[in-house]
Amino acid sequence: MDTKWFLVTVGFLLVSQVTLCLGAAEDSRPIAKRSTGGSCPRGWDQLDNSCYFFSWHERKWEDARNHCGARNAHLVVINSQKEQDFLERKAESRRQWIGLRRDGGSWRWVNGSPTSFTYWGGGEPNNLVHFLIYPENCVEMRRDGRWNDEICHTPLRWICEKSA
């Protein structure tokens, strides 16, 4: 079916509505798949006193961190098994950047909080050096929910967090 004919025939659809339905803008999901509730912005999910944004695009760790910062948020800081379980379920078995990074040999959260809770996969972190060039200094949540140290330049989805 020709798109112009479709728009003329249906008539009540505006171009902006068609754009929203067919493909959301960069870094956002279609509105129908996002949750709204509590005191979180539209498109963010809430658990307790935090709001979470799950990206639909992939970026390097630093770019993901900047994306969160531009929304007055930070890459997610995971403090408990309850929060880990929530994020794992919402991540839908997709690899996601989290806000943990190696800094001078120590793992540090982007907000400066201590790493009192961890959820590393077996044998992780292993700082496997790819092609003897790139160390694994950033952390992803793998498809199984466990954490893995990864090359920071790897494009992955990410999770932002901010206070509700």
Rank of each mutant, 00 (worst) to 15 (best):
1 M>D: 06
3 T>F: 13
3 T>D: 08
4 K>V: 13
6 F>R: 10
10 V>Y: 08
11 G>W: 12
13 L>G: 00
14 L>A: 13
15 V>W: 10
16 S>I: 04
17 Q>C: 01
21 C>W: 12
23 G>W: 05
25 A>K: 14
27 D>W: 14
30 P>A: 01
31 I>W: 15
32 A>W: 10
32 A>Y: 12
33 K>E: 12
36 T>I: 13
39 S>L: 13
42 R>P: 00
47 L>A: 10
48 D>F: 03
51 C>W: 03
52 Y>N: 08
52 Y>P: 14
57 H>Y: 04
60 K>W: 09
61 W>Q: 06
62 E>H: 14
63 D>G: 07
64 A>Q: 03
65 R>E: 10
65 R>I: 00
65 R>M: 10
70 A>R: 12
71 R>N: 14
72 N>C: 04
76 V>T: 01
78 I>G: 02
81 Q>D: 11
81 Q>V: 06
82 K>F: 01
84 Q>H: 14
85 D>L: 03
87 L>S: 01
88 E>F: 10
90 K>A: 06
90 K>T: 02
90 K>N: 02
91 A>H: 08
94 R>Q: 09
95 R>P: 02
98 I>S: 02
98 I>H: 04
100 L>E: 07
100 L>G: 04
105 G>D: 05
105 G>A: 07
105 G>C: 08
107 W>F: 09
112 G>S: 08
113 S>P: 04
115 T>W: 02
116 S>R: 12
118 T>F: 01
118 T>V: 06
119 Y>G: 00
123 G>D: 01
126 N>T: 02
126 N>I: 00
129 V>F: 02
132 L>N: 15
132 L>V: 11
137 N>Y: 09
139 V>D: 01
140 E>L: 06
145 G>I: 01
147 W>Q: 00
150 E>N: 06
150 E>V: 02
155 P>W: 00
157 R>K: 12
160 C>P: 03
160 C>K: 12
161 E>S: 07
161 E>M: 10
